[in-house]
C-alpha cells in the first residue's frame, strides 16, 4: 500500500491525503502562517525586552545607538527590501510560467542576502574590536552609562537571531531555486516557492523594525 502511494507521490505534486491542488496549497499556506506566528512571538519576546529597557534607560539606548552606524543600517534595510521585492518577483514569474526570470530573481535574492551578511560582518567586527559586547563580555573602557552592556546584549541577540534567519532563508531559497532549475514548479504547483517567499518577507519585516529601534533611537 505504502509503496503504491510513494509511487503516486513521485509523479504528481498532489499528496494522496488532499482532495485537490487548491486544498493542498491552502493547507500549506495555513501551516506556514501558523509557523510565522511562532516566529513573531519568538522575536516578540526580544522586542518586549527592548521596549521595557528602553523605557527605563532611554539615555543608555541613545548612547548605544551612537555605536551603530545608521548608514550601514540603512544600506542593509535597502538591501533586504530590494531582496524581498525580487523574492516576490520570483513567485510572480513562477506563477506565470516564466521560469528563467523566476530563477534569476531568486538568485538575485540570495546574492542580496549575502550582501546583507557582509555588511553585518563589518558592523559586528567593529564592535568586537572595541569590546562592545553583551553583558560581562563587555570590556570597552569609555562607556558613559553603567548599563551600556545591556544595550549590546539586546543588540547581539536581536541582530544575531535575525542573522540566523537570513542564513536559513538563503538556504531555503537556494533549495527552491534548484528545484525550479529542475523544472519542478509551474503555474499549477509552486507551493514551496510561495511559502519560502513568505518566510523571507517575514525576515525582511523583522529587520524593518530592528533598524529604527537599534540604529535611530536616542
Amino acid at each position: 500500500m505504502s509503496t503504491v502511494n510513494a509511487h503516486v507521490e513521485r509523479h504528481s505534486p498532489l499528496a494522496h491525503h488532499f482532495r485537490d491542488m487548491a486544498q493542498q496549497f491552502d493547507a500549506a499556506k495555513l501551516g506556514i502562517w501558523i509557523f510565522l506566528c511562532t516566529e513573531i512571538l519568538m522575536f516578540g519576546g526580544l522586542f518586549v525586552a527592548y521596549i521595557i529597557m528602553h523605557g527605563l534607560y532611554p539615555a543608555m539606548f541613545a548612547e548605544g545607538a551612537r555605536w551603530c552606524d545608521w548608514r550601514m543600517g540603512a544600506a542593509n534595510t535597502t538591501v533586504l527590501i530590494v531582496s524581498s521585492f525580487f523574492m516576490a518577483a520570483g513567485v510572480h514569474y513562477t506563477q506565470t510560467n516564466q521560469r528563467v526570470k523566476a530563477i534569476q530573481s531568486m538568485i538575485l535574492t540570495i546574492l542580496l542576502g549575502c550582501v546583507f551578511l557582509v555588511i553585518k560582518y563589518f558592523e559586528w567586527r567593529h564592535k568586537f574590536e572595541l569590546g562592545l559586547l553583551p553583558a560581562h563580555f563587555f570590556h570597552y573602557k569609555g562607556a558613559h552609562h553603567a548599563n551600556l552592556p545591556m544595550f549590546f546584549s539586546l543588540y547581539f541577540c536581536m541582530t544575531g537571531l535575525h542573522g540566523i534567519h537570513v542564513v536559513v532563508g538563503m538556504c531555503l531559497i537556494a533549495w527552491v531555486t534548484i528545484r525550479s532549475i529542475r523544472g519542478e514548479f509551474n503555474s499549477e504547483y509552486y507551493t514551496a516557492v510561495e511559502t519560502v517567499g513568505l518566510f523571507w518577507h517575514l525576515v525582511d519585516i523583522i529587520w524593518i523594525f530592528l533598524f529604527p529601534l537599534l540604529y535611530l533611537v536616542g
Binding site: A88, L198, L202, I208, V217
Partner: peptide
Amino acid sequence: NTLIAFLIAAVKASLVLGIFM
C-alpha cells in the same frame, strides 16, 4: 521619536504583509 520610528516601520510592515505576502 520612538513612536514615529515605530509607526513608519508599522506602515512598511503592512505593505510587505499586504502585498508582498
